[in-house]
Amino acid sequence: MTESEAINLFKCLADTSRLQILKSLAVEDMYVERLAKRLDLTAPTISFHLKKLSDAGVVTSYKNQYYMMYSLNKKIFQTSILEILLQESDEAQKQAQRDADYRQKVIDAFFEYGKLKSIPAQLKKERIVLEVIAEAFEFDRIYSEREVNLRIADFYDDFCTIRRDMIREQLFARNGTEYWRIKKN
């Protein structure tokens, strides 16, 4: 189920009359006039709702003699909400691009010729700045405190604060005077 199909489905279900129609169809297949009598609604109103339910794929129809019968598409209700949530979002790519743009904007604002101008006050921005500095370190390698300080000093004079914040942000781990870069999950 695509994201827009899921939205359509949820919108469709968020209506008392349509839910009552589905409840009736869960009991047995019915035609418009019967549903109208059962739910005390006019036949055109029932047809209107059935069209929406058909478009959302929750109801199917078939001809039985003179009547158009409507039945519940039980298969669609076997899909769990979690399955829908786990579907890759149509928006995912756009969101990733927006995130990348924001990250670049922060980097451009706080770095000048490879040097950090100041430590951002906002944690979200500081995290981005720290991630950039962390990239100067390799994974799977142990660094001494002096090595860490020297590399950070290439970016910013107050290497103590940066080093401490990198530990806090779990970009780095330490054991005494040994430091190593932590891989992202």
């Binding site: 209506d15 008392t16 009359s17 609604l41 109103t45």
Partner: peptide, 10 residues
């Protein structure tokens, strides 16, 4: 208010 928005719109 009874979550029958479409009928409310009618």
């Amino acid at each position: 208010a009874d979550d029958r928005t479409d009928e409310g719109n009618f």
